[in-house]
Amino acid sequence: MNSLNRVQKTFRVFEILSKAAMILSFLWAAVTAAGLLCGFAWYSGVSVAGVSRETLLVMTRSSTLNQMTGVLLSELVFALTDGALFLLSFRYFRQEQEDGTPFTRDGAEQIRYLGIWTIALPLAAVVLASAFREVFGVSGAGDWGNRFSVTLGVVLILASLIFRCGAELEECSRVC
């Protein structure tokens, strides 16, 4: 049981880290959304909290309002995607803590689901962000390689198979 205690402590740390990362991602999404709203207000000629349009253009490394909009929309998509993935991770770690073991059928299903979304969401985010950058004339593509998210997604799906096998073995040991 010593290893199960280590697993539980490790999963508890990851629960805390995923919650913190989720909060930070959603805060970043709120900041980018606020930047978009400020940009639209400045475009309409309204002053926002004494900050000039040039300040936001410098912060987003943009030269026009269109480019700034493209950059902020791209960042908003990535922040929301990251926040959603961290939310799913947090829910899994919290459920694992309640179950007391990673070897449950529900936990294996959650980790498989997380693996699928870890592959799909970043890919969708790259497509949307690229579209926004193209539509709004933002020059230079970002380095948005998806190898890491695809690899992590596959590892999570494989881990779900192992956790499901462990759950079946535990069920068999109780029944047998």
Rank of each mutant, 00 (worst) to 15 (best):
G137V: 02
I23D: 01
D99E: 08
F78G: 04
L158E: 09
S139R: 10
G70N: 14
T69W: 09
A141P: 03
V135I: 11
A108P: 00
T60E: 05
F163H: 04
S173V: 12
G166C: 05
L73Y: 14
L36E: 03
V58Q: 01
F86S: 00
S63A: 12
E15I: 09
M1Y: 08
D82R: 07
T32D: 01
S63D: 14
C172F: 12
A33F: 13
R6A: 10
L87D: 02
E134G: 05
A108T: 00
F26Q: 05
G100E: 01
V127P: 00
G153H: 02
L65D: 15
T32N: 05
R91W: 13
L65Y: 15
W117E: 02
G142C: 08
V48W: 09
L72K: 04
G107N: 09
Y113T: 08
A29N: 05
L121E: 02
V31Q: 06
C165K: 12
P102H: 03
T55K: 06
G45W: 11
G137E: 00
W117V: 06
P122H: 15
W28P: 03
F148E: 10
L128D: 13
E170V: 11
F26L: 07
I116M: 10
E75C: 14
N5W: 05
T10A: 06
A141F: 07
G70L: 12
L36S: 01
S62M: 10
V126R: 15
G145C: 08
A21S: 13
Q67N: 12
V71G: 07
F40C: 02
F132W: 14
T60S: 08
L158S: 07
E96G: 00
V126Q: 13
L76H: 04
W42F: 10
A129V: 15
W28H: 09
A167R: 03
L72I: 12
Y113N: 01
S160Y: 03
R53F: 14
I119A: 06
L57P: 03
G166Y: 12
Y43M: 12
A33M: 09
L88D: 04
S139V: 11
S62L: 12
R6L: 11
R6D: 13
T10Q: 05
G83P: 00
E109K: 13
C176E: 09
V51A: 13
L36A: 00
G140F: 06
F90N: 04
Y43P: 01
S160F: 02
L17H: 03
A159I: 11
E96H: 02
I111P: 00
R53T: 14
R94H: 09
C38R: 02
A159S: 14
E96I: 02
G83Y: 00
F90W: 14
A141D: 07
T104C: 00
T151W: 14
W28N: 09
E134I: 10
S173K: 08
L152Q: 09
G35P: 11
V138G: 03
Q67Y: 13
D99M: 05
G142F: 15
T104L: 00
L36N: 01
T101D: 00
L85Q: 03
E75T: 11
V58S: 02
Y43I: 12
